[in-house]
Each structure stands twice: as structure tokens, then as C-alpha cells.
């Protein structure tokens, strides 16, 4: 690339690694990168590019809206830093820095990891709140910015830590597990957004004493127009007892598929003349029926 065109004028100095190594949502990292590159469409930047708009800050309507104002000078931002207990640190770094990028890089370097993650997520939330004001005419108070940001970071950490734990447990298990983890990560994300993020049981549990457990699941193939079932029975010592696979044509909805899975599991367990079996599925609708 270097040989094709000289793009050295695009290089910005800075500790870019300190952004990318953060354990935060990718969209947060992306925003930090855009701020530090100087390509965030603040009104100052828009005017610079010939867009016909006001130069005043969308939040306070008083000052010139460039990145340093939006994130650090604006009263709205100050409230956010105050409530997240980062204000004194932010101000002391601001006094030593000349650009927004410099403030961000320095803070990322000097803050402990947890606070750096929080700082980054709050930057994202400040910009989000600014955009909500501009595009949807919604006004947040500082507190409304700080709390959801904490929640956002917490949920993300929860999901991603879990990913690592279960990933390690089934490391060599199967390539499919990756896909499953992603699905469940999404599920946890919505769950915990509503309730308080609790660590959720994500490991297989053995059946109760003197009982067997039959795990049931369905899979769906549009291409083959069929639904597949997997049944796996294990005992209280976690020993494998029996497994069964079968499939049916045509494909059906996931609810019907999961219900059919249970139906077949019950039939099979009956055929095996086992009477001490509990069934376990990951379909809430079936279990709660």
C-alpha cells in the first residue's frame, strides 16, 4: 500500500493499541478511534466540510461544537464525569493535553483497566446522548447517561466472560460450539438488560440421585427441508447411557420442532422402559407449557 500512494499525511500519532486492547463493546472502540482520528462529525467538523449548519453545541447551545467541547468542556459532559467520579482525573489530564486525542490516549494509559473501560463506554454514551438530542429530540440527564453506560459495560463483560469460561470447558468439543455461544450471548444480553445481571448456570448439571437425564434438542435445515433431533441420556454419575438421532421431513417452526423433540424423547424413553428420566431442553416455551 505504501508503495502505491503516499498516505503518510493520514497517519496520526498516538497509542492506538490502548484503544484496541480495551475490553469493551466494539462500537465503543470504533467511536474512540473516530474521535482520535478527528473524523467524528461534530458541527465544527461538518462546517469544515462545507455543511450548512450551526456551529453551536447540540447539548448546551452555547459553545463551538468540536470534540473537546462535546466530550470534556460541555457542562453535560462534565456532569457525566462528575457522576462517574472521573472528573478530577479528567480535568487534570485536560490541563496537560492540547488535543482531544491526547486527553483520551493519556487517560486510557493512566486509568486502571476497569476505569478505562468505563471511561471509554461513557464517551460512547455521551455521543449517543448528543445524537439522540439532535436526531430524536430526546434529552438525557447526566444520570441517565451514566447508569445505562455502566449496565452496558457490565452486561458485555458478563456475556464475554461467560464465553471464555464455557469456551474453555468445551475447547476441543466441536466447532459448532462457537455458534452456540454467540446465540446464547445474545440471549443473555436481552435477559440481563431487563433484570439485574446475575451469573447464570451455563454448565450441564447431572440428574438428581437415582434419576437419569435426557437432554433434547432440535435443529433445522432449510436446504434439506428437515428437522433433526438429538437425544442424550446420562446418569447421576455423569455416565453416558444412550443417545439417539433422528430427523423428519418437512421442516417446521422452531417451537413445533422443539415440541416434537420432546415428544420423541418421551416415546424413546418409554421404548427403553426407563421410568426415572427427567427431560431437559433449551426451549422455554416447551418447558413452560
Amino acid at each position: 500500500m505504501k508503495n502505491i500512494a503516499d498516505n503518510s499525511h493520514l497517519y496520526r500519532t498516538g497509542n492506538w493499541g490502548s484503544i484496541w486492547k480495551l475490553k469493551v463493546l466494539p462500537k465503543v472502540k470504533n467511536l474512540l478511534w473516530r474521535i482520535c482520528q478527528g473524523c467524528l462529525p461534530t458541527r465544527a467538523r461538518l462546517l469544515d466540510k462545507g455543511v450548512n449548519c450551526t456551529s453551536l453545541c447540540a447539548m448546551c447551545d452555547e459553545s463551538y461544537e468540536d470534540t473537546s467541547h462535546v466530550f470534556f468542556d460541555c457542562l453535560r459532559a462534565r456532569i457525566v464525569w462528575q457522576q462517574s467520579l472521573l472528573l478530577s482525573k479528567v480535568i487534570s489530564v485536560m490541563q496537560k493535553s492540547s488535543t482531544t486525542a491526547e486527553i483520551i490516549f493519556t487517560l486510557l494509559q493512566e486509568l486502571p483497566q476497569g476505569q478505562a473501560e468505563q471511561f471509554a463506554t461513557l464517551l460512547w454514551s455521551v455521543w449517543k446522548s448528543r445524537n439522540l438530542r439532535v436526531w430524536e429530540n430526546v434529552t438525557d440527564t447526566g444520570q441517565v447517561i451514566v447508569e445505562p453506560a455502566k449496565q452496558l459495560l457490565q452486561n458485555w463483560n458478563l456475556v464475554n466472560c461467560k464465553k471464555q469460561i464455557s469456551g474453555a470447558a468445551g475447547a476441543a468439543a466441536a466447532p459448532h460450539t462457537t455458534a452456540i455461544m454467540t446465540d446464547s450471548a445474545a440471549a443473555v444480553m436481552t435477559d440481563s438488560a431487563a433484570t439485574v445481571a446475575l451469573p447464570v448456570q451455563c454448565k450441564w448439571l447431572k440428574p438428581h440421585q437415582e434419576r437419569l437425564k435426557c437432554n433434547v434438542d432440535a435443529s433445522f435445515s432449510e436446504a434439506l427441508n428437515c428437522v433433526g433431533f438429538g437425544l442424550c441420556i446420562r446418569d447421576e454419575y455423569r455416565n453416558f447411557i444412550k443417545a439417539k438421532t433422528l430427523w423428519l421431513i418437512p421442516i417446521c417452526s422452531s417451537d413445533v420442532g422443539e415440541a416434537l423433540g420432546l415428544y420423541h424423547a418421551i416415546q424413546w424413553v418409554r421404548e427403553l422402559q426407563l421410568s426415572n428420566v427427567d427431560f431437559e431442553l433449551d426451549a422455554k416455551k416447551v418447558v413452560e407449557y
Binding site: G170, A174, I180, S184, A187, Q201, W204, N215, L231
Partner: peptide
Amino acid sequence: FSRRQANVAAH
């Protein structure tokens, strides 16, 4: 009910 992570064998 089990979470999907706990139902990988059947899946």
C-alpha cells in the same frame, strides 16, 4: 429448562 450452553450434547 436449561441454557443452551448446558444443552450442547443434544444440540
